[in-house]
Simulated scan of single mutants.
Amino acid sequence: MECCQHREIDSPDLASLMEAERTRFREACERALNAMNGPIAADAAARRRLLSDSELIVSEMVESLRAGRPRVAEPSLVTAGPQVDPRDSLLFWEEFFSIVLRRLIAYADIDDRSREPFMLAVSVLYEGITARLSESLVSYSGHLLDKVHEAQRDERSRITRELHDRVGFWLNTASRQMELFEVARERGADLIGASQRVEKARFAVREAMRSLRATTTELRLHEPVQHLEKALLTAFAALPAGEATIRLNINGDEDWAPHGVKDEVFLIVREAVRNALVHGRSRLVVVGVHIAPHELRVYVDDDGVGFDTGTLSNGKGIGLSVMRERAEALNGTLTVSGTQGRGAHVGLYVPLPGHADA
């Protein structure tokens, strides 16, 4: 057997034998990756990167043996491309070290003559692997930091949405009710109607405080929306509708939509209706919600003053952008259209997981 054949070789001979083993080394590394059956084995790009690095280390060993001194190139830090957990790549490099070391031992008889090239080859092997592991660790650390920063940005956006939709809505409602109260008082309207305005404003302020507490503690509602129709009717009743009429039509089984989806849809619809009343000065707002096993669609149409489509690109206010962010968070789409003097239309599409028994 080859492992029992001890031969005295000098540095160039060992280099030539290592050169001849390239294909054998790669095949052994591929088998090792397949046996790992982990994230690396499933990621074609990560596999190619590790196999390429292992071949480079073999080249460094050959060059070092021929030069009689270490020739280990400093790997360039590459943050793009596949990001592999260093714990997974360490398993591969441990196996690679074992594969190459066994071949070196099979070739060399450790005596005074072959000791130096053998130790040189092992040293280059170790340094090459260590350099790649260090590179992987630094790159992966940067990848994790990017994820943290991305999560922080997403969290800031989410907090903005929560404050706008939950706290801002009720404060705007309270402010509008007080404005209507002042108008009614100046016109000498009946006290009962004016008192109702004040009571609605008080209710809105209390809801704003409750929502603010929920936002600062949990950054979410205390309870998700259980019944979308009931939640929307309650919200519409608190809106400063004045003489306007809001019609709601819901078709389909609400159980087809997860609570988290209904929660976000509720906030989008509520904001759309509020915009129609406050900014569009609509007399009629029609809301339709159609729920199917695999999708949820919403439309909000009004007969208000509409808008110039060019105003949508000005980015004024955060209401529309928040609605879009909520739709995107559901992997859905939000469309807004309107004509000045002829009302507006808001459409929402949200895909649902679907139900086999539907």
Rank of each mutant, 00 (worst) to 15 (best):
I40N: 06
T173W: 00
E179K: 11
V205P: 02
A46H: 11
T335Q: 14
Y107V: 02
S313W: 03
S175C: 07
S16V: 04
E223F: 11
A194V: 05
G315Y: 10
S136C: 11
D357F: 07
L180K: 10
C4A: 04
T217S: 04
H279D: 13
E27K: 11
T217C: 00
G347I: 04
L277Q: 08
L191T: 11
T217L: 06
I192Q: 05
Q177D: 12
T216P: 01
I40H: 06
L56A: 05
T245D: 14
E74Y: 07
H6M: 04
V298G: 10
S134A: 11
E186I: 02
M209V: 07
A121F: 03
M119T: 04
R342L: 06
T215A: 14
A237V: 03
V322W: 00
T216I: 15
A237C: 03
A35M: 08
I250H: 05
R161Y: 04
F25N: 02
R87H: 07
F96A: 04
G242D: 12
N172M: 08
V124N: 01
E179T: 12
L145F: 13
V122P: 02
A189Y: 00
E243S: 13
V278P: 03
E179H: 11
E207G: 01
A174C: 13
H294T: 12
F92Q: 08
I110G: 01
R166P: 01
V198P: 01
E74F: 08
G315R: 13
L219Q: 03
A28R: 15
A45I: 05
V305S: 13
R166D: 12
T234N: 15
M323T: 00
A45L: 11
F307P: 10
Y140W: 15
R102W: 01
V285S: 04
A46Y: 12
P117H: 02
A238R: 12
G252Q: 07
T79R: 10
D146V: 02
R283P: 00
K316N: 14
R113L: 04
V148L: 03
T23W: 04
D112I: 08
A45E: 15
L137M: 03
T217F: 02
I291K: 05
R220Q: 10
D165H: 10
H259E: 15
F97K: 07
G81N: 06
A20M: 12
H355T: 06
H143Q: 09
E27L: 07
T333G: 04
